[in-house]
C-alpha cells in the first residue's frame, strides 16, 4: 500500500494559440485550457502504481479559476482525491515549488510523481526544487517505474545508455512521455469523478522573485509561404528550387 501524490499542471492550449500579426504577441483571450501533456503521463503512472501495488492517489494542482476542470479529468483517470491550490498567476518555478512543497510537507506520502518539464514553459525546475525542499531524493526522467520493498526502481533514458536507478522512499519521481499511454476515461468514470472529494484552498504567495518579463512574442517568420494547390505546378517549381540546393 502506497500513499501516492501526483502534481500536475493546467496550461493554455498552446496548439490553438494564435499570434497577433501586428505585435507578434500571442492572443490569449478566449484560449481554452487543457491538462498539460506530461501531467497526464504523471497521473497515469500514479494511478497504475495504485492499481498494481495498492494505495491511494492524491492529486494536487496549483492553478487558477479553471483548475477544477483539470482536477476533474485527473479524478476521472483514477485519482482518488483532489486538492486545488488556488491563486496561480504567473509561470514562476520559485513560487510553484514553494506552494507545492508547503502543502506536501504536511501530508503523508511515499512517492510523489510529476512530469519532468511542462509543455508550455519547459523550465523543468519545479520537481527538483520540491524534492530538495522536502529533503527527499529526486529520481528523474523515468521511462519505466517499479516498486519493491518500499523502494522505487526506475529506468532513466540516457544518450548512450539507459540507467536503472533505485531509491528509498519517500522519493520524487519525474516521468517522460514514453513511460505510458495516458488513459481516456470512459464516460461513467467522468460522471463518477464528480462525487470524489475535491478540496479548494486559497493560496497567499509570499515568495520574492526578481524576474520581470520584458517581452514575449513569436519570432518573425521570414518564410516565403509560396503554397501550390496545383500539385503538378508545385512539383515543377519545387524540384527546380531543390535542384539548386542539392549537389
Amino acid at each position: 500500500m502506497y500513499n501516492i501524490i501526483v502534481c500536475f499542471k493546467q496550461i493554455l492550449d498552446i496548439d490553438q494559440m494564435k499570434v497577433d500579426e501586428s505585435t507578434q504577441e500571442p492572443i490569449l483571450k478566449n484560449l481554452p485550457y487543457r491538462l498539460e501533456d506530461l501531467s497526464k503521463n504523471a497521473i497515469e503512472e500514479a494511478v497504475r502504481i495504485k492499481e498494481k501495488y495498492g494505495g491511494k492517489v492524491i492529486g494536487i494542482t496549483y492553478g487558477g479559476d479553471q483548475a477544477t476542470l483539470a482536477m476533474k479529468e485527473a479524478l476521472a483517470m483514477g485519482v482518488d482525491e483532489g486538492i486545488i491550490l488556488k491563486g496561480y498567476k504567473e509561470n514562476n518555478p520559485e513560487i510553484t515549488s514553494d506552494v507545492l512543497a508547503k502543502k506536501i510537507s504536511g501530508m503523508q506520502y511515499d512517492i510523489i510523481i510529476m512530469g519532468n518539464q511542462s509543455a508550455d514553459s519547459y523550465t523543468g525546475l519545479v520537481p527538483g526544487k520540491v524534492a530538495r525542499k522536502l529533503s527527499i531524493p529526486l529520481v528523474g526522467n523515468a521511462i519505466k517505474l517499479e516498486m519493491a520493498d518500499r523502494r522505487v526502481r526506475i529506468t532513466r533514458t540516457g544518450e548512450e545508455k539507459n540507467l536503472v536507478l533505485e531509491s528509498n522512499l519517500p522519493a520524487l519521481v519525474t516521468v517522460e512521455q514514453e513511460i505510458n499511454e495516458p488513459r481516456l476515461p470512459p464516460l461513467i468514470q467522468i460522471m463518477a469523478a464528480g462525487r470524489k472529494p475535491m478540496k479548494i484552498e486559497e493560496i497567499q504567495v509570499n515568495v520574492k522573485s526578481t524576474k520581470k518579463v520584458i517581452w514575449n512574442r513569436a519570432p518573425k517568420s521570414e518564410r516565403k509561404r509560396i503554397v501550390f494547390e496545383d500539385v503538378d505546378k508545385g512539383v515543377a517549381e519545387i524540384s527546380k528550387v531543390l535542384k539548386g540546393e542539392v549537389k
Binding site: P26, K212, N216, A218
Partner: peptide
C-alpha cells in the same frame, strides 16, 4: 528563452 511550447520567445530580466 522559448515560451508557450516554442511558439514565442520570452525576454526576461532578473537577478537570477
Amino acid at each position: 528563452r522559448f515560451f508557450y511550447g516554442g511558439k514565442t520567445v520570452i525576454r526576461e530580466e532578473s537577478e537570477a
